[in-house]
Measured scan of single mutants.
Amino acid sequence: GIDPFTGEAIAKFNFNGDTQVEMSFRKGERITLLRQVDENWYEGRIPGTSRQGIFPITYVDVIKRPL
């Protein structure tokens, strides 16, 4: 089901994660935001896939912030 505490964002740019914990994505992908890790990073996942990880806040347009 849908978790009411998650947020939502759209990727503004392609992001290629450097490490296992970073999640790569392509511009235009819809991302579920799980939490804000710190002032620069979100943790999120791509709905319908097993992809999950952290990524820079500046790479996405936030539609709804996670609670």
Score class of each variant (00 low, 15 high):
G17A: 14
W41S: 07
I54F: 10
I54E: 03
F15C: 02
G53I: 02
A11F: 04
Q20K: 12
P56Y: 02
S50C: 13
K27C: 08
R51C: 04
Y59E: 03
P47C: 08
Q36K: 10
G1R: 07
R45H: 10
G44W: 02
P4Y: 14
D18A: 15
P47F: 10
F25L: 06
F5W: 15
G28Q: 03
V60G: 02
G28M: 03
E22Q: 13
P47Y: 09
G53V: 01
G17R: 05
A11R: 00
E22G: 06
T32N: 07
F15L: 02
F55N: 00
P47D: 14
T19A: 11
E29S: 02
G48K: 06
V21Y: 14
L34K: 03
Q36H: 07
E43K: 05
R45I: 10
L67Y: 06
D38R: 08
D18H: 15
V21Q: 14
I46K: 02
G7F: 11
R35P: 01
I31K: 00
P56A: 02
R65L: 15
E29F: 02
E39A: 12
I63T: 07
P47G: 08
T58A: 15
N14W: 05
G28R: 03
L33P: 00
A9C: 11
A11Y: 01
S24H: 05
E29T: 05
T32M: 10
D61R: 12
E43N: 04
T58Q: 13
T58N: 11
Y59K: 07
Q52P: 01
E22M: 13
P66Y: 04
I54D: 01
D61S: 10
F15P: 00
K64M: 07
Y59I: 05
P66G: 07
G17H: 03
V21G: 15
P47T: 11
D61A: 10
F13E: 12
L67C: 15
Y42V: 06
S24T: 08
T6W: 14
P66H: 07
G48P: 05
A11K: 00
Q36S: 07
Y59P: 00
P56C: 04
V62I: 10
T49C: 03
D18Q: 15
V37D: 02
Q36C: 09
I31W: 01
I63V: 10
L34R: 03
G7K: 09
D18V: 15
D18G: 13
G44Y: 01
S24K: 05
L33Q: 03
N16T: 13
F55Q: 00
D38T: 08
L67M: 14
L34S: 04
F5Q: 15
T6S: 11
T6K: 10
R26Y: 10
M23F: 08
R65I: 14
V62Q: 04
K27Q: 11
T58W: 14
L33W: 02
D3W: 12
G28E: 03
F15K: 01
M23S: 01
Y59L: 10
T19C: 13
R45C: 14
I2T: 14
R26W: 09
D3M: 13
E22D: 05
R30W: 09
N14E: 09
F13L: 11
R35E: 04
E22T: 08
R35N: 06
G1E: 14
R35F: 07
G53C: 02
V21T: 11
F5C: 15
I10V: 12
P66A: 06
Q20T: 12
D18Y: 14
F13V: 09
R26F: 11
L67H: 15
I2G: 14
E22W: 06
G28I: 01
D3P: 11
F13Y: 13
G48Y: 08
F55V: 08
R51V: 04
V60R: 00
L67S: 15
A11V: 02
R35Q: 07
L67P: 15
N14M: 06
D18L: 15
K27P: 05
A11L: 01
F15R: 04
V60M: 03
V62A: 04
V37L: 12
F15A: 00
N40L: 14
A9P: 00
F25I: 06
E8T: 11
A11W: 01
